[in-house]
């Protein structure tokens, strides 16, 4: 297993390089002057030039790229223009809530969508299947902030069961922590449950047509054993794939959810950075999230081989 992991790790290097080039060039080639943005509206030409020099934007593009890459590799994401603190420290400070939301969302999504997807596949074409299919189109068409406001409207303002917004760390008590995350996780997971259920259903339907399923039936296994042991077992690889594909969508959703529920995580840091035009933070967070996406996909790639020994290294 170790050689496989090392080989896959090596294969991520070109992708990481492309990501770095794309982020750098998109941001540098986009018309607009970061120095002028940082300087603000009332700045003089001299002030803008001074900032440009300070930010290193007056050096040749290749030099800027190499400097930036080597800083990032050493874990130096620069200094925030808003707070004057190292961006790295701000990111570490804000990681907790974001990790909690994403983790709970993924767990909750799998808990709901796997059984519902299997049920729909098993009852293919029946009323329950049509209901699930229609529900899933609805689920991924409603934007996450609309779902969020509908849930706040019903459960916080209407019934008064849950807080409208805010965040409590786990150290403030388990229930207090979870209570504040129920609506954010429910909003964020709606789209993923919709996507994942649809995908589980399709994967199971695909495997149900295979010979080994007929064999399993023939040897007298009951319906549940066939569905769970054989069909779900073989659908595991496509299900893992969709988790990998949706990581970047999940990250976009976290930004929106944290903004609606006023949760002090990395997503809200992005929004604060937009409003303050803090370019350094935005750039650092794109790099961070892209790296997270690449590594989640790396882990999934290794998991394939655990789940399905037929995939050779």
């Amino acid at each position: 297993m170790l050689p496989v992991i090392l080989k896959r790790l090596a294969a991520t290097i070109p992708v990481l390089f492309v990501v770095a080039v794309v982020i750098f060039s998109v941001l540098r080639l986009t018309p607009g002057d970061p120095a002028a943005i940082v300087a603000g509206d009332g700045a003089t030409v001299q002030q803008i030039e001074a900032i440009r020099h300070h930010m290193g934007l007056d050096r040749p593009i290749p030099v800027q790229f190499v400097t930036w890459i080597s800083d990032v590799l050493r874990g130096d994401f620069g200094t925030s223009l808003i707070s004057g603190l190292p961006v790295k420290d701000m990111i570490v400070d804000r990681m907790g809530p974001t990790i909690a939301i994403t983790l709970y969302t993924v767990i909750y999504t799998l808990l709901i969508s796997i059984p519902v997807g299997i049920l729909a596949a098993w009852r293919r074409g029946k009323a329950i299947d049509r209901l699930v299919t229609a529900g899933s189109v609805l689920g991924f068409s409603v934007p996450v902030f609309i779902t969020a406001y509908l849930l706040i409207f019903l459960f916080s303002m209407g019934l008064g069961w849950l807080p409208v917004q805010g965040y409590k760390p786990l150290s403030d008590g388990v229930w207090n922590h979870l209570r504040h995350l129920i609506l954010p996780v429910a909003s964020l997971s709606t789209i993923y449950i919709a996507l994942m259920t649809r995908f589980v259903r399709t994967s199971i339907i695909d495997t149900l047509g295979e010979d080994y399923i007929r064999t399993a039936h023939a040897k007298g296994l009951n319906e549940r054993e066939v569905l769970v042991r054989h069909a779900l077992g073989n659908a595991a690889v496509p299900i893992l794939t969709i988790i990998g594909i949706t990581v970047t969508m999940l990250i976009g959703g976290v930004v929106v959810t944290e903004s609606v529920f006023n949760i002090p995580g990395l997503g809200r840091l992005v929004v604060e950075a937009i409003l303050a035009k803090d370019f350094t933070i935005i750039q650092a967070l794109i790099v961070l999230f892209s790296v997270v996406d690449i590594f989640v996909n790396l882990v999934i790639d290794v998991l394939y081989r655990v789940v399905d020994p037929r995939i050779d290294s």
Binding site: V15, P31, M249
Partner: peptide, 23 residues
């Protein structure tokens, strides 16, 4: 390979960054 790289970047964040640079 270039397409793989672009797909690894969260779309919303890339868009946010471009809009905040160029207004």
């Amino acid at each position: 390979r270039i397409m793989d790289g672009v797909m690894a970047i969260p779309a919303i964040l890339l868009a946010i960054a471009m809009v905040s640079v160029s207004g």
